[in-house]
Amino acid sequence: MDIALEILSWGLLFVGSAFLVIGGIGVVRLPDVFTRMHGAGIIDTMGVGGVMSGLMIQAGFTIVTIKLALIIGFILYTSPTATHALARAALHGGVRPRGDETPEDESGQGNSSSKT
């Protein structure tokens, strides 16, 4: 394999793993559920993306590469949808985001409209 590709791949793997751990730390350290979502977002984007693309380069052009690409695509596609579903559920479940500066009536509105 090309030495440049090798270096690039290991670099990606390293960066990906680093971001995974940072995201994990974020999930533990950040103060409330909404802020923790940003930590999880790091895992889903940079962490997964880095590690998986590192693996892709390692694999060369085979069916493995294609499947890894599918997995990245799938995670990048589903992650925001799932995060949004969760955020919405939390908002409607009455969790107030910390440091809620602008007065929000979004959740109250959502509840009342659905209660009818």
Binding site: L30, F34, T35, M37, H38, G41, I42, T45, M46, L76, S79, P80, T81, T83, H84, A87, R88, A90, L91, P97, E104, E106, S107, G110
Partner: peptide, 26 residues
Amino acid sequence: YGNSITLTPGTVTIEIDKDNLTVHAL
């Protein structure tokens, strides 16, 4: 747009109503 916001760490779309997006920013 909403998904792009969520995909970018630091911002999460928490509610979407027509063209009004409520975003939580870290």
